[in-house]
């Protein structure tokens, strides 16, 4: 057999196996997951809204109140990760606890804590960005791109 037809046979076998795997693999409970994500994600946003409303009622301007709300939410995400409950929530809530800014805090704190035993500089200090780093990279690049595009079409 030529190496080309061998290659073809291999691909066909892989494809056949892939179909078998897809047939047998249990599917995630999408409806249940979505319901959890909706409720938990919604509730986290409600907490944010309550904080925002309170800050605005204290006479803080809207922009600063928004920033403060983000900071408070990040603090809570960090705290609940630290005391070890955010990962349990994530197991149930999925995207409901990943998408809110508390999930961003969770990614940062979980990475930082995990590498404490490798020291505070190259353990915590470096690894703190292992998951949040890409997020900031893409966010910053997008923001500068948007700024430059606005500049060009001003």
């Amino acid at each position: 057999m030529s190496s080309e037809s061998e290659e073809k046979l291999k691909t066909a076998q892989q494809e056949e196996y892939h179909n078998l795997v897809n047939r047998i693999k249990p599917k995630p409970p999408v409806l249940k997951n979505c319901l959890w994500a909706f409720v938990v994600g919604g509730l986290i946003c409600v907490i944010g809204q309550l904080i925002l409303n309170y800050l605005i009622s204290m006479g803080i301007n809207k922009v600063d109140a928004g920033s403060l709300t983000a900071i408070i939410m990040i603090f809570m995400g960090a705290l609940f990760t630290g005391i070890g409950v955010y990962d349990d929530l994530g197991q149930k809530a999925g995207a409901g606890s990943i998408v809110p800014i508390t999930g961003f805090a969770n990614a940062i704190v979980a990475s930082a804590m995990e590498f404490k035993r490798e020291g505070y500089i190259f353990g915590v200090g470096a690894r703190i960005f292992s998951i949040a780093g890409p997020t900031l990279v893409f966010g910053f690049v997008a923001s500068v791109l948007i700024g430059l595009i606005k500049l060009a079409f001003r």
Partner: peptide
């Protein structure tokens, strides 16, 4: 921690 995620990260496991 070597192959997957930090232990305290909120990750949803899939049935497989």
């Amino acid at each position: 921690r070597q192959f997957r995620f930090p232990t305290e990260q909120g990750v949803q496991k899939v049935p497989s």
